[in-house]
Structures are given as structure tokens and as C-alpha cells.
Write a protein that binds this DNA or RNA. Structure first.
Lengths: 180, 180
DNA sequence: CACGACTAAAGGACTTGTCCTATAGTAGAT
DNA sequence: ATCTACTATAGGACAAGTCCTTTAGTCGTG
């Protein structure tokens, strides 16, 4: 997966270091990757012939290994792009926690949990809203970035709303059964 | 992560096989796990002293290894439950595809992609709605299961709505720039 | 009684991802 | 001069997860 994302981000040649920055900046809302993994993946991709690299002197540090897509790389990327939408494995740790929190029989703790979750969800929503606010669709690339961003936003908003509602419901349940 | 989910599901003793069924049935909306991984994880947990197991004859097949939580297991589980909500790493392959689809400069393909995605999202939504419809909150466990389910539902609904909107926007953009 | 479907457990091989550490150049502050 | 922060790459060790195969008991169907 990461291979194809890196291929996509390499529409112009860049170093592993710069690619890592790009995740930290923009791409965080659909993927994130460890520095170590990025370097290893780039190396592997070069072995496969999807990339070629060149050491280039840097102005503010040691030499950079700058990677560029090869025609094979571009082709592999397009094949991936034309695949059906790839769903991730369902893996929502905090939902698992919430689900299993039933076993504590302690609604007090559930309220605490949801309160903390609300903070997290709001943070994510605000982060996305921040990106969205200074976003101006000029190109077809921007258009797609905007679509992706809005999905994140829609998700984040639905979840914060759900969280508020869940808190209300839990507090109500607590008033009815203050013994638990 | 899986360790704690298994601890949670083992509120009563069960075999690896039965636990795998449970994922397939209900727990799919917050986690899924490979059969092979479940067995290995259970074995590891027994080594740690979180579980103990016993071979028991089965009525319809070979002997089952039935696992039960030990007091240490229960304690470890509670510690995990009391942790702050654990966010998963952001990893949305289909959003990455959509984002990078800009590089194809082919809105036709984007429409195709979104159409296919809509089918997938609707399926997930319907699956969750199916579970939700025959869901009756009787216990505090049910209450938490219901909260978790509703989060899935809210997410699924927001996403299908987003997808419909994205399709409309793309078709509109296509009429304006039919050359791309 | 042969066969397929289901129940049940488990290991091999591999990929992906994480955490930590090492190495080394550059540039500004003290 | 030295220290810190940032730029830059890379490897070791390990954890988590996937795919595939093996082994074996049970039960119903043809």
C-alpha cells in the first residue's frame, strides 16, 4: 500500500526525508508512515525498478538520495489507481474499548472515556477544518484532494456529533441507574 | 490490541474457533482477526498467565482447547479498559486512491471509482443497520454495544452521504471540463 | 463407504509496521 | 570551541498480521 502512495507522492522527484515531511503536513488524513519504513520501502521500490535514485548534495545537511519514478513505476501506480476502492481491515481500538467497557459496569468511567474521546475527536475535526479553510480548488489534483479531505471532515463531524449524543445518553442512563 | 479484545470476549470460557465466529458475527464492526493469529495470540496469552486452557471433547468435531481468563488476565484487561481512548493509525487506502486519482486527469475514472465506492459503503451501512434493527438494549453490556454500533452507523451514513455528494460534484465538474 | 462440509487446532513463510539507535553534515547560539 | 537543533540516511530487533498448508474428528448425502 505504502509503495503506491509513495509512487503517487513522487509525481516529482524527492528525497525520503521530504516525503516524510509531506506525510506530516498534508497526507496525514489518509495515511501515515514511519521514517524508517519510508526509507526501506523506497529502497525496495528501487530494487523492483519502480524508482531510480541519485545522491545529490543538499544545501542544509548531508547528501540527499533523491528518488524519481521510472516508467514501470508510473505504470504500476496507474494499475493500482484503477483497482476497485480498497477497504482497510476494520480496526477501531477505541470502539473496542467502548464496547467492552460494558464489562466494568461503571457508567462513571464510560462518561470519563467519552469525554476524553470527545476531546480527541474535536481535535481531529479542527485539524481537518484548518486544512479545509485555506483550500482553494484550482486544478484537477486540488479537486481530488478536496474530495478526500471532505470525506475526512464528514467522518469527523459525524463522530463528534455521535460522541455528544453518546455522552447525553450515558448521563441519562446514569440518572436512572445510579447504582451501576 | 487483539490480546485485550480477546480478553474482553472471554467473559466466559471459549475456544479459539468460537472466538473466530464471534468476530465474523458481531465484533466485525470494530475489529477482525485472522484465524491463525487468534490461535497464536491465545497461546501467547496463556504463556503470560492471562489465560488458562483445557482440552475438552467436542460434540461435533475434534477436541477443543477452551480458554478462560485468569485473575491476572482480568486485571490486565481492566487496566487496558481504563486507558485513554486509543486512536488507530490513519490508514485509509481508498481515500489515498481517491486523492491520487487526480494524477490520472480522468474524471470519468473518478466517477467510476466513486460509484464502486458507493456500493461498498452502502453495503457496510446496510450490514450495520441490519444488526441495529434487531437490537434491544436490556443490560449495561447491551448499552455499550449499542453505543459502539451507533458510532459505526453514524460513520457509515456520513460516508455514503459524502459519496453521493462527491459523485454529483464530479459529474458537474465533468460537464464544465469535458476535455479532462 | 466415499465425499464434501463443517469443526477444530496449529505451524511455516512472509510482509508490514514500530521503536530505537547509529552516523554524519550544517548552522546558529553561548 | 561546544552545544543544540535540524537535515539526512539507514540498520537491528521485534511485534503484528496475512496467506497457505497440514492434520484430524464428525456428520450427512448419494
Amino acid at each position: 500500500m505504502l509503495e503506491f502512495i509513495l509512487l503517487g507522492l513522487l509525481f516529482e522527484p524527492e528525497s525520503g526525508y521530504a516525503l516524510k515531511q509531506r506525510f506530516a503536513e498534508g497526507a496525514t488524513y489518509f495515511w501515515d508512515a514511519d521514517q524508517s519504513q519510508i526509507y526501506r520501502t523506497l529502497a525496495r521500490m528501487e530494487d523492483k525498478g519502480w524508482l531510480r535514485s541519485q545522491l545529490e548534495p543538499s544545501e542544509d545537511g548531508p547528501d540527499q538520495r533523491v528518488y524519481a519514478r521510472t516508467p514501470q513505476g508510473r505504470r504500476a501506480f496507474e494499475v493500482w489507481l484503477r483497482e476497485d476502492p480498497i477497504q482497510p481491515p476494520v480496526r477501531l481500538p477505541y470502539v473496542a474499548q467502548l464496547f467492552l467497557l460494558g464489562e466494568l459496569e461503571d457508567l462513571e468511567r464510560t462518561v470519563e472515556f467519552l469525554t476524553s474521546l470527545r476531546t480527541q475527536l474535536r481535535q481531529r475535526r479542527r485539524a481537518l477544518e484548518g486544512v479545509a479553510s485555506d483550500f482553494d480548488v484550482r486544478s484537477i489534483e486540488d479537486f481530488h484532494a478536496d474530495l478526500a479531505l471532505r470525506l475526512g471532515l464528514a467522518t469527523a463531524r459525524a463522530r463528534t456529533k455521535w460522541c455528544d449524543d453518546a455522552l447525553r445518553r450515558t448521563r441519562r442512563a446514569m440518572r436512572k441507574e445510579p447504582n451501576s
